[in-house]
C-alpha cells in the first residue's frame, strides 16, 4: 500500500541518489520520488506549490552537504516559510556525517523529525515510511 504520495530526496551525490531512490521504489510505499541536487531547488519547488498540497512533499530526505544551499541553510529558509505552506511536511536529515556537533545541531531544529545516518537500508526505510 502506498501511504506516501510524494517524497523529496535532496542530495547532490548521484550514486547515492540512484541507490536510495531504487531502495525507496522497492518499498512500494511511495507513489512518487522527486530528486533535487541542492537545497535551493527543493525550496523553489515547495515555494512554487505552497498552495497546492497535491504537489508538496509528504516527506523530505535531506542531505547536509550540498552546493548552493546546503541542508542547514535549507532548514533555515524552510523555517521562515513553513507557516505559508498548506501541508505538514516531515523532514529527515540523511547524512554521512557522524559528527556529534551535527547531530546536536539537528536536535535543536523543530522542523526535523529525525537524524538518519547513511546508508538507509530497505528495512529502515520501510519502518520509517510506515510511521507516516
Amino acid at each position: 500500500m502506498k501511504n506516501v504520495k510524494n517524497l523529496f530526496l535532496v542530495d547532490d551525490d548521484d550514486i547515492f541518489v540512484f541507490l536510495t531512490k531504487t531502495t525507496i521504489e522497492r518499498t512500494g510505499q511511495v507513489e512518487q520520488t522527486t530528486v533535487f541536487t541542492n537545497g535551493q531547488l527543493a525550496l523553489d519547488s515547495i515555494l512554487k506549490n505552497k498552495n497546492n498540497p497535491e504537489l508538496l512533499p509528504d516527506v523530505i530526505l535531506l542531505d547536509l552537504t550540498m552546493p548552493i544551499l546546503d541542508g542547514w541553510q535549507f532548514l533555515e529558509e524552510f523555517d521562515l516559510i513553513k507557516n505559508l505552506i498548506s501541508k505538514t511536511i516531515t523532514i529527515y536529515i540523511l547524512s554521512s556525517s557522524m559528527a556529534p556537533h551535527d547531530m546536536e545541531r539537528a536536535k535543536h531544529l523543530s522542523s526535523i523529525t529525525d537524524y538518519l545516518i547513511k546508508p538507509v537500508t530497505a528495512d529502515k526505510l520501510k519502518h520509517l515510511l510506515d510511521k507516516l
Binding site: F16, S97, P119
Partner: peptide, 12 residues
C-alpha cells in the same frame, strides 16, 4: 566523516 565516509556508504 563526509568526504571519506560518503563514498564508503555508496560502496557498501
Amino acid at each position: 566523516s563526509h568526504n571519506i565516509r560518503g563514498p564508503l556508504v555508496n560502496l557498501s
